[in-house]
Design a protein around this nucleic acid. Structure first.
Length: 270
DNA sequence: AACAATGTTCAGTC
DNA sequence: GGACTGAACATTGT
């Protein structure tokens, strides 16, 4: 699930609940999640320190650490969540869909753990194991955060080149934070065909896409996740457009499963 | 059992 | 070198 809104929720959770608590132990034994670090490397670097700030760019988070320690980078991957337990055992989650009943949490799905001296912990919980933890993650390769990109920058980024517009929205080096569901929602809101080539977009298209980006992000934050998007519920065989009722189409664009309205998001003429 | 899944990365081609 | 494509990655759910 994690796209920008979920990652921001997880970041806030860390900022609110996990800072300034002394790290007493670190479980970094999952060598895939912690690659390229060897087991024990993160423990050695973090034990005794505290997290002092939680930051985010796109879907990448990192925590600054005390005494000039390294940054702790965390990526939620395809389905990771952050679970913070307080000193008195209260559990708080961030990064997954907001829901009343907590999902089952098998201990073996805890992929990385900071144990605090107060008895609580911060856990990267991730069934699919595609999440990632690393020291000093470089964020230079990421484009501007999707929540902060200016209309002018966005217009440039979304019209340059000739790739399918959805592939461009998903390109983290251009705009950081948009994932597969958010991309479908943005394109649907803006009534742009996902396969339209970036070079064929007119300024009016770029404007609608920018406004759709803003509103899709705001709505996902308010409602509690990108899965709450208006068109997301129609993303299944037989689904119909929530606006006009026309059949939804399905295909692969930019290597990802893609759904669009057969009437309102007509293929570009060529 | 085969296939798809909300993400990233790397090898390969143009 | 840049732009672009497709497969691989680990695991679960359908």
């Amino acid at each position: 699930m994690p796209e920008l809104p979920e990652v921001e929720t997880a970041r806030r959770l860390i900022a609110d609940e996990a800072l300034h608590r002394r790290i007493a132990d670190v479980d970094d034994s999952d060598t895939f999640v912690c690659r390229p670090h060897a087991p024990g490397e993160l423990r050695a670097a973090l034990t005794g320190r505290t997290l002092t700030a939680a930051r985010r760019r796109g879907k990448t988070m990192w925590c600054e650490t005390s005494e000039g320690g390294p940054d702790l980078g965390i990526h939620l991957g395809m389905g990771g969540r952050i679970v913070v337990t307080s000193a008195d055992g209260q559990v708080a989650e961030g990064g997954g869909p907001r829901r009343r009943d907590a999902q089952p949490r098998k201990p073996e799905w805890d992929r990385f753990t900071l144990g605090f001296a107060d008895g609580g912990s911060l856990v990267l919980f991730d069934k699919r194991r595609l999440g990632r933890v690393r020291l000093d993650p470089g964020i230079d390769a990421l484009g501007p955060d999707a929540a902060e990109v200016t209309p002018a920058e966005f217009g440039r980024l979304i019209t340059r080149g000739s790739v399918a517009v959805k592939a461009r929205l998903l390109d983290q080096s251009r705009i950081a934070g948009v994932g597969n569901l958010l991309a479908d929602e943005i394109l649907w809101q803006a009534r742009v065909h996902p396969g339209a080539r970036t070079g064929t977009l007119r300024p009016a298209d770029a404007d609608r896409l920018y406004r759709a980006l803003e509103s899709a992000l705001a709505s996902a934050m308010t409602r509690g996740g990108v899965h709450t998007g208006d068109v997301i519920a129609a993303r299944h065989p037989g689904g119909t457009c929530p606006r006009c009722g026309a059949e939804m189409r399905h295909g692969t664009v930019g290597g990802r499963s893609t759904w669009w309205c057969s009437r309102e998001q007509a293929p570009p003429d060529r």
